[in-house]
Amino acid sequence: MSEPTRLLDSGSDLERSLLRSALSDAPSEASRQAAAAALGIGAPGPGTPSPSGAAVTKAGISAFAKWAVVAALGGVMAGGAFHFALLRADPAPEATAPAVHPSAPSRVEQSAPVTAPPITRTQPPSAIPAPEVRAPRAPPSQPPRPPEPERRHQAPLEQPIAGEAPAAGAPAAAPDTSTLAEEIALLDSVRVALARKDAEAASASLAEYAARFPSGVLAPEAEALKIEVELEGGRRVAAERLAEEFFRRHPRSPLAARLRALLERAPK
């Protein structure tokens, strides 16, 4: 089958002009490094020393965990349609067959929210714990959330999490991935309870989180969920007080805008 001539060579002036405008598309080095950090693989690239496979940085894990929880929260908070939708994105192209192994998990399994750190080829798919209930997809009419600067742009220089005191000059130890998975799972149970409008169960899960992970990597996300729980329980004053504290401690959190919207909508 002969190849047609590309429009870049044979098109009209305007066609070529338009197509040429996209030839320079390329990611910046900062983009590459931020993505690598979020994946926990450091900053690859020519001339850049790569960390060992086991040396997943705290920034990388923290960024990924935050991404996962923020995405999960987005499902409940109904405003984070974009990133949550991405999490649930089916890997199959829109019009092509999926390039997956025939024994791949079912569609339901594939679309479950992240509840554990990324897995390796050596792990069977069953090693991924899946939550019992999946948060509903946000309606398409919801506005998308703005980009999450804390997740991407700050990944290489992750700020200390509340309650943590990173040692100066020494790389912080990466949190145990199983512990991280437990944190995520516990907060996910809060989210699920909130989706059921069960403030009591959500509060119990949050109390368990606070007891087990007093300096958890996902403490800010737990704080945000606590505010939701208070609102769900009809305790607006308490929610406002916690929110004020949250905004002061995490002024750039991607959750802040959502919390403000929730507070505005809550009965006075």
Partner: peptide, 13 residues
């Protein structure tokens, strides 16, 4: 970034 995060979850597939 999202593409690779999804890929990292689905490597076995």
């Amino acid at each position: 970034q999202e593409v690779f995060l999804i890929a990292s979850r689905k490597l076995p597939q």
